[in-house]
Amino acid sequence: MITINCPFCGPRDEREFEYCGPHRQKRPDKINEMTTSAFIDYLTVPENPEGEAKEVWWHRRGCGAWLLVVRNTRTHEIIKVSELDAT
């Protein structure tokens, strides 16, 4: 059970958030022009670090913000939380 420090609401309990997967590259604009192997890697191969991982959480039962959370997968310590900036 973790506490996530929402940049808008302050520290809130995990129960308010929804995990939305590991952070990945933004959907390529020209996805049709990707090679098959690049496309499959994009779809199926996530980062799997033992240590700091970037992931996306939605403050679904809170303010609704989408957050980029840097979390240590060994200790579950949260290193950084910021608004998801997908640009």
């Binding site: 995990e14 929804e18 995990y19 033992e50 991982a53 997968t73 060994r74």
Partner: peptide
């Protein structure tokens, strides 16, 4: 647990 993890503990929730 939600999210990736390499620890061997338990999530209280």
């Amino acid at each position: 647990d939600p999210g990736q993890s390499f620890r061997r503990g338990s999530n209280q929730l």
